[in-house]
Design a protein around this nucleic acid. Sequence first.
DNA 1: ATAGTTACTTGCAAAAAGCAAGTTTACATG
DNA 2: CATGTAAACTTGCTTTTTGCAAGTAACTAT
Lengths: 130, 130
Amino acid sequence: MKKTTEEYRSKCPLSIALDLIGDKWSLVIVRDLCMGKSKYGDFQSSPEGIPTNILASRLRLLEENGIVIKEPYQDRPTRYAYFLTEKGADLLPVLQQLVIWTQKYVPDCLTPPEIFSQITPQDLLLKRER
Amino acid sequence: MKKTTEEYRSKCPLSIALDLIGDKWSLVIVRDLCMGKSKYGDFQSSPEGIPTNILASRLRLLEENGIVIKEPYQDRPTRYAYFLTEKGADLLPVLQQLVIWTQKYVPDCLTPPEIFSQITPQDLLLKRER
DNA sequence: ATAGTTACTTGCAAAAAGCAAGTTTACATG
DNA sequence: CATGTAAACTTGCTTTTTGCAAGTAACTAT
């Protein structure tokens, strides 16, 4: 995933998207955020087993790119919970299409909770506000 | 991108999709195929400037994963042109959603040809048959 | 005969990923 | 009070992947 200051490979919107979130881990974190996870340990406990240094660096990059924001959820020590921004929530249709594709072509993959295919980016943000 | 024989990180359809095409280059090649490019040199000449060894390895993996097929377009020496399979063409909605997202959030990106947002996976395969 | 084209492969250096261990700050227990 | 546990990271190091440059093979054109 691209550091914010670097240049894009081209001005094609597809390649820019891949510069920003085109790696093996970023969208896995976004998926977890869509499913309501918000703390560091939540992401670590996902079945893919993301290495902790990669998780920390991806959260930083996702924040730099305006896809997530972090908010303190306690003091002493200050700990942060992570949430999707509108920009991040708008990645949901991308995730949904990826899931549809895999479901069609990869036999032994799981079926996500029904709600996953039904929610919209707005739903994710509304959940946030409550 | 995943070698065909390896295991997936999990059985989640999202992470499987990323195991298969979650890297910086695979979908750039799929984009070019959607736009009618088919020869090695066509992919090389795209503005992103894919390194030739990466291009060769990605075409091999995309073929192993059933996303592209190659067909000889001349003999002496035998040269192959690459085309999307149905599985590959069905990645179009993913690309379209990625483009919508970038257009919404990244100011100075280009607008793809109007046809790109209008075509369907079936159109790509029909084009093939002619 | 020489140069050019197309589609690659090979070798090597640089960058990124992955693993294990360590650090920090605080709470909980005996 | 000392020890242990937990959450959220960071650091160090090895392995893998990427990226660049150069080389190769099989023709075609001049």
